[in-house]
Design a protein around this nucleic acid. Sequence first.
DNA 1: CCTGTACATTAACCCGCTATTAACCTTGCT
DNA 2: AGCAAGGTTAATAGCGGGTTAATGTACAGG
Lengths: 223, 223
Amino acid sequence: MLNLLLVEDDIDLATAVIDYLELEDIQCDHAANGQTGLNLIEQNSYQAIILDLNLPQISGLTVCESMRNKGIDTPVLMLTAMDSLQDKLTGFAKGADDYLVKPFAMQELIVRVQALSRRRSGQVNLLKVAGIELDLEKRKAAANGRPLKLSPTAFKILELLLRNSPNPVSRKAIIQALWGDQQPESNSLKVHIFNLRKQLDTATDKPLLHTVSGFGFAIERID
Amino acid sequence: MLNLLLVEDDIDLATAVIDYLELEDIQCDHAANGQTGLNLIEQNSYQAIILDLNLPQISGLTVCESMRNKGIDTPVLMLTAMDSLQDKLTGFAKGADDYLVKPFAMQELIVRVQALSRRRSGQVNLLKVAGIELDLEKRKAAANGRPLKLSPTAFKILELLLRNSPNPVSRKAIIQALWGDQQPESNSLKVHIFNLRKQLDTATDKPLLHTVSGFGFAIERID
DNA sequence: CCTGTACATTAACCCGCTATTAACCTTGCT
DNA sequence: AGCAAGGTTAATAGCGGGTTAATGTACAGG
């Protein structure tokens, strides 16, 4: 679940935002001024920060700047009524990742903040099917927690199969994806499938990689 | 130097954007329709993509969706005249990272796109990962307190790897970041990696710079 | 202006891994 | 029984990657 921080002195707006976030199952701390904001940022680790700029004493710009100088690179979405081009430019110059002008639609705030934190937490490229996890970003695969040792081609095949699971992928499609036009005319694919299946079987009790006779292969949990 | 892709069918707007980017020393490829856009995206490795939504044949939304389905998570900034809330929401739902409505100020486009690509490679000038410290301001690096003697290119590579750690960085991305378009076609990168690794190994007991076969390199503490 | 240093780029070579083969085996179907 | 589709195994060739040394080039200091 997401864990955010909202730094906003307007209490009404703040509670509105927090209530709305709660509906989306997003947990959100709140700081009413810049100083406590900075303290919370240093103590905790948030997926993203929603930062109002018009704050008493320490301005939002300063908050952002000083957290960046301390080496904290949590994504920051600046929230403000100042909509001049210059305001936006300085906002980004101080280290903002996004800039939203009041008044705004709650839903837009949500999706923007989700876009920011999704990128950071690496949720973007993670395929999970039937106990198999394939992390495109880390380039690692595991089944039931056990890591798999895959050759580059085995990795590609697994990715293809997982993307289409539980539907089978035709031989032709696999060959096309692996080699394009200059295809080896021997049983190379058979061997790769064999090796991949061997890896998977060492980590799972039931076989997951099934042959669809005359067509291709599929990954599916069959009970 | 940044390397972007602009997918936009309005030639006048496209050249305007590209000219403007050039002033900021940003290199930008251009595709006039969705299909060539997708092709370029698959072949090259960009830091960010500026994507118009109103394209002939394949719409920008489809382009974004299908690149995400292929596992490409390059940041995408959508650019369109459609400014309704619903349009924005579907844009983000299809995998956008930012959404800018036409007409827009050139400078805002620039800073937003910079924020996106910088994010992928950090906001911060002091990187600490796995006992390695890299100070971008002082341009100094150390591992376990011991200072490292790095050539300019080795320094850049280390920065790239640290910013993505523990995820691996593809060869393509490293080459792109180091040389842009005029790439040396010999094993220059191999040599730089070798030297960097040698430096790191003198200061650490366990090797930290790992090669991901068929893909690239990663810095990660493995226990 | 000359020289030395630091760095990038090449080329050449080696090693180990991976892909590709080909051959053989198993199964199921007719 | 015979055949076709798929599975298994082992051998080989080729490539990706590691290592080293030589060459080229920019630049600083004398």
